[in-house]
Design a protein around this nucleic acid. Structure first.
Length: 481
RNA sequence: GACCUCUUGGUCAAGCGGUUAAGACACCGCCCUUUCACGGCGGCUACAGGGGUUCGAAUCCCCUAGAGGUCACCA
């Protein structure tokens, strides 16, 4: 039975690298019909951010990554929050002490810091010197009983190799001599990440662990622990980092967005998931659009990449635009409406029609307000906007055209797009004008912008007859000034 | 510094001993068009470098370079 887990620490928002790890973990589990579990790793009490756990639940739900077991859904292997499991780690550490895989350490922070800085001064790598390993069992137990602060350290052999087989990177092997006797149980009684992981993954019967490459070098050490316990290690698969550029990974510090930031900006959940899935995994075909269900179907370990990949916002935006266009007009309107209302008074404008005009021009929802704000208020604009080479227009042509079109517009009784279209086109033909030479100036005169959603007729309709005529008058005055 | 890992266009990437080295984003043209966008067509740009192995290397091996990761009572 395949059981995978996503095990974030509640230290803030769900960043995109984490989302991708969660996604792949989820996809793998679902693809093979296994279970996907959420576990919260909160053993570092100092770094914990209040509310972060709820953020994780929300983000995962928002992303559609439903988990079979977890703190807020229960399951047979709980609790799923490590601090709620605090008492269960010590006995395992003690078991390790019994068989020589670990030992008590009473060294003070001062002694260790001193030793460390001394080594660093000499440019050497610091390793704990196994000072407390020399203590007899009786001595150590006496000091523990006496209430002396202690930690429990892993007893790494001085020679030999430690290794494991990564499902992506293959066999990874290191000399034990280069490994440090890391702390398993901290002075506060809580396990360290390395230890909690091993114990919990075993207790929760996790079969496959996917996580970032930052853990790749510590993985061989895990196997030593599994060996000491006599447990079978899960299959590990380390995932390359998601980068912001060639040398730095994605990070909040540089303003890189989290999943929620993206959602707030008006990216679609489906687009983000689709894009993220393809960042480091390839279906090995030319297909690039996948729903979550289709990803589950297509996902496999073969398609994973070993090299880090750079998060390309342009491509995400393109994906998002494609997803926008796939929306039905109704669905698009529903999503666009809140953004339209930021710039337009619903009582004054036909928002549905505006949304239709915006539909295939919108890549990201947050672009909407600035695309339509000219409707609420006529912007100041330079007369150079009237100049368009292909339309063969300039301010002089425009003034002439506007003067001709003003009475035509005024005479249109049926102020619908059809009505305006009929009236305007008839006049253009009658006056022997070119479409572009009439319509371009008209659009500029009533919008004040080089680019607008919709042309002169659509904008005229949206503005209403009165406002349209008023804008034409003002623009004529501007040209005559 | 030590150990581990990675390296195909600006970016995502296919390729797994024989290909004109796909495709997508971005960019640049052209077409469509009352603007822009959409759409259509076309273009640009890559196997990090050097040695091997082989009849034949992007594909296998070694070295170099560059980049990343780890070296905590953080995860």
């Amino acid at each position: 039975m395949v059981r995978t887990r996503f095990a974030p620490s509640p230290t803030g928002y769900l960043h995109l690298g984490g989302l991708r790890t969660a996604l792949y973990t989820y996809l793998y589990a679902r693809h093979v019909g296994g279970k996907f579990i959420l576990r919260i790793e909160d053993t570092d009490q100092e770094r914990e951010v209040p509310g972060a756990i709820d953020k994780i639940y929300q983000s995962l739900r928002l992303a559609g990554l439903d988990y079979d077991e977890g703190p807020d859904v229960g399951g047979d292997y709980g609790p799923y929050i490590q601090t709620q499991r605090r008492d269960l780690y010590l006995p395992y550490a003690q078991k390790l002490i019994e068989n020589g895989g670990a030992y008590y350490c009473f060294c003070t922070k001062e002694r260790l810091d001193e030793a460390r800085s001394e080594k660093e001064k000499k440019g050497e790598t610091y390793k704990y010197d196994k000072h407390c390993l020399a203590l007899t069992k009786e001595e150590a137990e006496r000091r523990v009983a006496a209430g002396e602060p202690y930690v429990i350290r892993q007893n790494v052999p001085l020679s030999g190799k430690a290794s494991f087989d990564d499902a992506l990177y293959g066999h990874v092997e290191v000399d034990c001599a280069t490994l440090d006797d890391n702390v398993l149980i901290k002075a506060d009684g809580l396990p360290t990440y390395n230890f909690a992981n091993v114990v919990d993954d075993h207790l929760m019967a996790i079969s496959h662990v996917m996580r970032g490459t930052e853990y790749l070098s510590s993985a061989p050490k895990y196997n030593l622990l599994y060996e000491s316990f006599g447990w079978t290690p899960p299959t590990y698969l380390h995932l390359p980092v998601v980068m912001r550029d060639a040398t730095r990974k994605l990070s909040k510090r540089y303003g890189d967005p989290s999943f929620e930031d993206l959602m707030d900006k008006g990216y679609l959940q489906e687009a983000i998931i689709n894009f993220i899935a393809l960042l480091g995994w390839s279906p090995r075909s030319e297909r690039e659009f996948f729903t979550l269900a289709e990803l589950i179907e297509a996902f496999d370990l073969e398609g994973l990449s070993k090299a880090p990949s750079i998060f390309d916002m342009d491509k995400l935006t393109w994906f998002n635009g494609e997803y926008m266009r796939k929306l039905t007009p109704e669905a698009f309107f529903e999503k666009a409406e809140p953004w339209l209302q930021k710039a337009l008074d619903p009582a004054k404008f036909d928002l549905k029609r505006v949304a239709e005009l915006l539909h295939n021009r919108t890549d990201v929802l947050d672009q909407i307000p600035e695309m339509v704000d000219f409707l609420s208020e006529m912007p100041e604009f330079p007369v150079e906007l009237y100049t368009h080479k292909k339309m063969k227009t300039n301010p002089d042509v425009a003034l002439d055209a506007l003067k001709k079109m003003r009475p035509v517009m005024a005479g249109i009784a049926d102020w619908t797009e059809e009505g305006i279209h009929a009236g305007v086109m008839e006049a253009i033909a009658r006056l022997g004008m070119k479409n572009g030479q009439a319509l371009w100036p008209l659009r500029i005169a009533i919008s004040g912008k080089a680019n607008t959603p919709g042309g002169a007729i659509e904008i005229g309709y949206l503005l209403g007859k009165e406002e349209t005529l008023a804008r034409i008058d003002r623009s004529i005055a501007q040209l005559e000034a």
